[in-house]
């Protein structure tokens, strides 16, 4: 009888120890894992023109001595800005005094305040499109040239620069 009780006691003790170990194992397990993901969106401003090279050729260039509109060409200006109160300015490097370049806006997509026409007579920077705020948009840009000196240089190269800046 004593032997039976001893065997039972030993088995019970083993069972208890195993149960405790099993519970501890279950508690030490984890069935979930965490990962910290930080998403940061910086301010970005993008502006491009659809045509990198615009040629304005005038058949009247060598014939007329009178001042007047000669020819025009069009490109498309496209932008995206997630900043607030931004504007696009424009400047012409290498502006020539023998001609006046007019820029006019057409087919504006996007909510902005704009100057619809301006002259590029020198290298100074002009506000072109104002009130860009967290938006993407586009517009047509039409160039027209008025010749001042038909007997001057036969060709003028303008490097027109569009820049997104703060208003």
């Amino acid at each position: 009888m004593k032997q039976i009780i001893s065997i039972l006691a030993r088995h019970t003790a083993s069972f208890i120890i195993l149960s405790i170990l099993n519970s501890a194992t279950l508690l030490s397990q984890y069935s979930a894992s965490n990962q910290v993901v930080t998403l940061e969106v910086l301010e970005l401003n993008k502006v491009i023109v659809s045509k990198q090279l615009l040629a304005l050729e005038s058949p009247l260039y060598y014939q007329s001595s009178s001042e007047g509109p000669v020819v025009s060409a069009q490109t498309r200006l496209v932008w995206t800005s997630n900043g607030e109160w931004r504007k696009i300015s424009v400047a012409s490097k290498q502006a020539s005094r023998s001609c006046i370049v007019h820029i006019s806006l057409q087919e504006m997509n996007g909510d902005t305040n704009t100057r619809h026409q301006l002259e590029l007579t020198d290298a100074s920077t002009h506000d072109f499109i104002q009130g860009l705020s967290k938006s993407a948009g586009s517009c047509g840009v039409r160039f027209s040239v008025i010749m001042r000196d038909p007997d001057g240089e036969p060709a003028h190269f303008h490097s027109v620069v569009y820049t997104v800046t703060s208003s």
């Binding site: 910290v36 993901v37 930080t38 998403l39 967290k134």
Partner: peptide
Amino acid sequence: ASQGTGTDPHT
């Protein structure tokens, strides 16, 4: 772009 700038810290 219309959402502007900012940071989202996710766990």
